[in-house]
């Protein structure tokens, strides 16, 4: 009997780590190829640029992953980013201290997330629908507030932040670390993280085991909204304007990063490092394609093919054990 137990399939414990290493290897491979193929890729300037490009999607992808793990989806994050740039710009231009302006913007993101939770838990709306609805309405509200114009932010210190570096690493990338480490601890080492997985796997079993399913769902969408608002602040700093039509399609890039990073759209499978790597793989492809003078339209096609290939092989391995 005991031999039977031992002979059974190998533990899956290392699967996540292994998958993460595979992604990391892919990223490194891309970097090596691009360094050889182009002269400018390996330059400090370009690397900094790449890290800046990838950082914002990476943070969005982390929030998105929390939601996807519960079996949901958050289509609103791109719109929240655009909306948050408007809020931040208006507050700063109105003379609100930058610190307070950022805090209020983040709270707006939290409120949007809570609203999503309310729609799903209390009104029984599918996540796809409620977040699709906020996607389009937030863009509309932002356009109303700005009359369709961009708001230039007149605070140089605020804009300086996203352009500067700290010990040679762009500040924007430090923000990924700032978000990533607590997110990792939250998802993998707190009971709330466990509940995200259990709700995504089987909400009824979780409920019967005493897990507060509603609160778990509220939490996932709130964190996603918070991440999106934070990215909005970073974007406002980077481009120096508030504009509600910014970050068009970022929700899809965030979902793509998450999925490339091994998150299952059926829920209950995902990590924090996966989506981060996924976001930087996408950023590298875009960056490399630019340097290689590949038609920008091809970048979108490559991204699509990459999603299919990675998810297909991941699915094969999961099924085949």
């Amino acid at each position: 009997m005991s031999t039977e137990a031992i002979a059974a399939e190998k533990p899956k414990r290392n699967y996540n780590a292994l998958f993460g290493l595979t992604l990391l290897a892919l990223l490194v491979l891309l970097w090596v190829i691009l360094s050889v193929a182009t002269q400018s890729f390996a330059s400090g300037n370009n690397i900094s640029n790449l890290l800046r490009q990838g950082s914002m999607i990476a943070i969005l992808a982390v929030g998105q992953t929390f939601v996807i793990i519960t079996g949901g989806i958050d289509l609103s994050v791109g719109a929240v980013v655009g909306f948050a740039t408007v809020i931040a710009a208006m507050l700063i231009n109105a003379g609100v201290p930058v610190f307070l302006a950022i805090l209020i913007t983040l709270l707006v993101g939290v409120a949007i997330g809570l609203f999503h939770g309310f729609g799903i838990v209390k009104m029984g709306l599918p996540p796809f629908i409620i977040t699709l609805a906020t996607l389009t309405s937030l863009r509309g509200i932002g356009l109303l507030m700005t009359n369709g114009n961009s708001i230039s932010i007149n605070n140089d210190a605020f804009q300086e932040f996203s352009r500067s570096s700290f010990v040679g690493v762009p500040n924007l990338f430090w923000m990924v670390i700032l978000v990533g480490i607590p997110a990792y601890i939250f998802l993998h080492h707190s009971r709330w993280g466990r509940y995200l997985f259990s709700v995504g796997s089987n909400a009824e079993a979780s409920r019967l085991s005493g897990v507060n399913v509603q609160r778990t769902i509220y939490m996932a969408y709130t964190l996603s909204g918070l991440c999106a608002a934070f990215v909005g602040v970073l974007l406002a700093s980077r481009i120096g304007i508030g504009n509600p039509t910014q970050a068009e399609g970022w929700e899809l890039q965030a979902i793509a990063s998450s999925v490339i990073g091994g998150t299952s759209l059926f829920g209950a499978v995902g990590s924090v490092h996966g989506p981060l790597l996924g976001a930087f793989i996408l950023a590298t492809i875009n960056n490399g394609a630019n340097l290689l003078n590949v038609n920008a339209f091809w970048q979108r096609i490559i991204t699509g093919v990459l999603i299919i290939v990675i998810v297909y092989f991941d699915g094969l391995r999961r099924r085949g054990k």
């Binding site: 939250f186 707190s190 997985f197 259990s198 079993a205 979780s206």
Partner: peptide, 27 residues
């Protein structure tokens, strides 16, 4: 109703008692 099938055995066993085996929020 009983199990989170695509999650580890250990997580399933501990699901009702995570509150007890974590201090503050950390497990």
């Amino acid at each position: 109703q009983g199990l989170c099938l695509n999650l580890p055995v250990g997580l399933n066993l501990n699901l009702p008692i995570y509150k007890r085996i974590s201090s503050n929020m950390l497990i």
